[in-house]
Design a protein around this nucleic acid. Sequence first.
DNA 1: GTCACTGCAAAAGGTTTGCAACGGA
DNA 2: TCCGTTGCAAACCTTTTGCAGTGAC
Lengths: 150, 150
Amino acid sequence: MSEVVVEVRVADWGERVLAALRSEGQRLTGPRLTIIHWVAAQERPFSAEALTAALAPAVGRATVYRVVDRLRERGWLARVQTERGDYTYVRTLPGHHHHAVCLRCGTTLLVEGCQTIETLTALLARHGFRVQGHILELFGLCARCQATSS
Amino acid sequence: MSEVVVEVRVADWGERVLAALRSEGQRLTGPRLTIIHWVAAQERPFSAEALTAALAPAVGRATVYRVVDRLRERGWLARVQTERGDYTYVRTLPGHHHHAVCLRCGTTLLVEGCQTIETLTALLARHGFRVQGHILELFGLCARCQATSS
DNA sequence: GTCACTGCAAAAGGTTTGCAACGGA
DNA sequence: TCCGTTGCAAACCTTTTGCAGTGAC
């Protein structure tokens, strides 16, 4: 079972992103490096506001939004809806995943595959509904936070 | 299995909402009735913008937002994220549900219960993660739309 | 040297709020 | 009558866009 749940590796992420951008022939400008390094250091989901605020005035707001969009398109960043309904971003890896976000520390587990969605898909199929896509976010407490008291 | 998937009944909805508001001692004002009737007639998810536009200038924008919020708090309206990432609203019923939204006609099925989430929850538990909440939206084609060509 | 990228500032878009007037119960 | 509700308009906040200048390759 360990192959379907993966914790996003902190050290890896930034380097993998940079390697990917390089291999696509994208320019590794100062602002881009600043943003990627900052994101790589985040251990929990962050808001667009937090990102722009953290890098101001070194990096312009417009640039932040443009770079974030690009990373999202490429699958390095996921926009995750919180239980409260607002958006946050988390480092992720290209491919189809779902996210299990720790409510306390923000640690994000990637859940690969959608076996459970398949069950629901089958249920709905019996009602004539053909599932073609879905959005799933999970929230809870990671192992570390359960171990920590308070 | 038919007990876990329910199509939101059109005729019912408005009356149930009115009855609920009445029983809570809320005022059934003109603007509120207008909004509820309009929503009751919608067979597919609608945006806040569509709602405000449809009722303007009979009902002010501020009032629309305030009433929608109230219905949402009471569980009569759900804010559903689309695959494109923007929000739409659908009639729903109080309680915990998930929604299966037809990509073509917008018909919304309520999926009651979270059996499949439980599978995922168990999987994550084996990784030490304790799931406490989730967001799930399903998209696809309802039976009627599959039957219709084009 | 080129052209992708950036910053600035302004525009846009959507939601919320203040406040005086209104009108259900 | 009273107080919850409403409309208007302005404020707000976040994101996007236009455009001239910059700098990575």
